[in-house]
Design a protein around this nucleic acid. Structure first.
Lengths: 254, 254
DNA sequence: AACGGATGTTCCAATGAGCGGAACACTACT
DNA sequence: AGTAGTGTTCCGCTCATTGGAACATCCGTT
């Protein structure tokens, strides 16, 4: 009896367990009870209880009056030091703000992270359409404007590698045929911007441009709007100006 | 010899050690070598090496080509789920953007966190003055506009408690006399907004207003500008409209 | 108010994850 | 090439950690 770590699937190391517990939280489950964390992390209740208690002490988790645990402020605060926030988001934010004011639509900034589009920030009010994107969240490359940009400016080998895996069909309009997608990426590169039409969320389309440094797309900047508002020529124009502005901010670092 | 945990000051538990390692990173030291982490966390080199390796595996730290460690994207990403970001920042952001466009000055949004002002976001371009504030960072309550607001709308007991401790003099103009500060807070409440004049950074002043819910200041919203640009009546007007807008967004949650 | 199911907390003998000093390896500078 | 600084690996030993079980609390229903 004890203390062999016998629970199948759960990490063995203490730090690995803490990371697994923190990984239980996501966009759809922001608040979790102890039992829920135990189930998701595959840790026994008492082990979960102990790990969670330490994370609460350290400020990485917080427990509300509803007895549910949420990500704590300290974790957010330290997380702000990550280069994706500290270097990119912070410098891009004034430009994102301007772009939001100019268009009144959803503004998204994303980077490539483990083969997906990681949203660095998203600016939109209640009037703006729902895009499925949130700061810190991931979406597939092939169904989103920013994702297509990030993919198009990859090396041919990286693109081939992405196309090898089955492409998720997010909506009936998602491009999941590798041949069609490859053609789409070629066109994206040729045009200098990406387009989507209901490929990620129904009714919506997007325009996105790369933020280029040294020939690479270090990030992608996009506008998501309902198709009825998608003024492509105008959005391309303002996006490219904004992209240039952000690139300039990023280069003035040293 | 080994493995007694003999290092004075270092946590004993593994998770506590991981948290201590992550706590070594701050605004002034965003990138650290292994040796630096070891020194700051008071952990022996080999222990540090092991903890850091696990955090890198879990995506909480990343190591660059300069051999230095930085906070990893995954930590940022999970951190975005914290209510301070997910509930407050995200909803306030469009209004912050508008305010930034209207004023062209530094916009700050802060909450009370462990007796300090925690900056939830900050919007400013290169033209804007340097304020010492960054998203995720803390500044004293008594020297900042948002901090004074957060303090003024505390209970009298909480205010008294804050005044008991020696008040840090950030600049020669900082108010560090408890009697003067108390008077300042009374006036702040009476006026409905806070002012600073070079109390936090030289040359700059600020105007800040509370975001009230149920009679409490759940956050504070401020503009920081050089004193020559500090148009108080106009800033108060736009800040109070923005504060109302954010409050409205927060109440439309349920 | 009572009850029961769900959720959460505490305990403890046993054990293996983790310990840190030491040896070794790598890097950068002179 | 030498040296100092930084980083990595190893290993016998120990204590932080284990999870099942007992116990406690909470909450919804009757």
């Amino acid at each position: 009896m004890s203390p062999a770590r016998t629970t199948a699937g759960a990490p063995i190391s203490s730090i690995g367990r803490a990371i697994a517990v923190l990984g239980c939280f996501n966009e759809r489950r922001r608040a979790l009870t102890l039992s829920e964390i135990s189930k998701k992390s595959l840790l026994p209740m008492s082990s979960t209880h102990r790990v969670v208690a330490e994370l609460v002490t350290g400020g990485f988790l917080v427990r509300g009056s509803d007895r549910k645990y949420r990500i704590g402020t300290r974790m957010w605060s330290i997380g702000q030091l990550a280069p994706v926030s500290d270097q990119l988001r912070h410098r891009a934010l004034p430009t994102l703000a301007r772009l939001y004011e100019e268009t009144g639509e959803n503004i998204t900034l994303a980077v490539l992270d483990r083969g997906q589009a990681l949203y660095v920030d998203r600016l939109g009010g209640e009037r703006s359409v729902h895009t499925g994107a949130r700061a810190g969240g991931h979406l597939p490359l092939h169904t989103t404007g920013v994702g297509k940009v990030l993919l198009a400016w990859q090396t041919p080998a990286a693109i081939e590698k992405y196309l090898e895996r089955p492409l998720e069909r997010t909506t009936p309009y998602s491009i999941v045929d590798p041949v069609k997608l490859k053609k789409e990426l070629d066109e994206t590169r040729e045009r200098g911007y990406a387009l989507t039409r209901q490929e990620s969320t129904a009714g919506n389309g997007s325009v996105a441009v790369p933020i280029l440094r040294g020939g690479r797309a270090v990030a992608a900047l996009g506008v998501v709007a309902h198709l009825t508002h998608l003024d492509i020529p105008r959005l391309v124009e303002v996006l490219q100006a904004a992209s240039e502005s952000i690139r300039h901010e990023l280069e003035n670092e040293h």
